[in-house]
Amino acid sequence: MRRRVPCLVGVTAVAAFVALARTGTDAQAPAPAPALENRANDFNAFTVQGAVTALIGPGGNASTQGNITVQVSDDATVLVDSGRGDANDRAIAAIRRVSNRPVRFIINTQAGRDHTGGNEALAKSGRPYGGRASGAGFLIADQGAGATIIAHENVLARLGGAKGGAPAPFGMLPGETYFTPEHELFNGEAIQLFHTPAAITDGDSLVFFRRSDVISTGDVFTTQSYPRIDLAAGGSINGEIAALNRILDLAIPRATQEGGTYIIPGHGRVSDEADVVEYRDMLVIIRDRVQDLLKKGQTLAQIQATKPSFDYDRRYAVAGYTGEQFVSLIVDSLKASAATPAVRSAR
């Protein structure tokens, strides 16, 4: 039996946004939180909770930049993902408005260029972990090396060209990789990386900031479209659903199943468990419909004719990635899974 208790965190921008949480007779208000505005030409910063801020690309949800997560301590700034790389100056300026501590680590949730394009520039804007006092030290990292880029080893393999395609510039590559189910880091709080195999790609990581109670998901979760699963890069519909279930296992909401653990998606708005539940349910329902038709021996054309994603298309289909395309992807993924059923960790 699982019992949940409210997770109390400090006063946060999210809490201020959600409501003045008080029940009673007439009350006097605390100072109101400043109004949020959507910046068309600059990154939008949203203080999530604890030590974590989300940077949403210029223009807000319409931005093609992957979201950047900024976590700060007295020692360092840690980033999750680095954007597309074509607005690095603005990204660095936005990060420095959040914290003046050096960027010492950049975690890549996957190899997609909208999440890794700024790796080199943002790493160079920072410093490695460690230092060199004047006149002292040896075996100390070169301070000119910039921040350390961390990712699952499959991200390095993909960016480095080992899995096909042109290799990315050397400065963009992760310098620290992991191959285990989990990896960890500390920056004023515990930071856990969870490998979610075969989700969007074979190298996706969820990043959990434990004291802040925030999860940065990369493209495993987005509020903007159907998941852009890359079958050629090792992604799968079942692995994607398993990754979303992993987020739900980590997240614990406050009362009325709202807030508590906050979720920063790869694209789109800051969310919580309930938003992920809705997204997970949508994928399971569409997957089950497609799977049922496949079991009945229907062809792709026949399956598409039944419009298995019809009730979700008006919300999640976007230009260049329609419901029909998503259904086609699910068909291919399920056929591939049937051929090779051992999807690790797919629950």
Binding site: F17, N38, T256, E258, V270, D272, A274
Partner: peptide
């Protein structure tokens, strides 16, 4: 107090 609604990227709630 006349404040504007936040941008779309702000959290959604019940």
């Amino acid at each position: 107090d006349g404040r504007p609604h936040p941008p779309e990227w702000a959290p959604h709630t019940w």
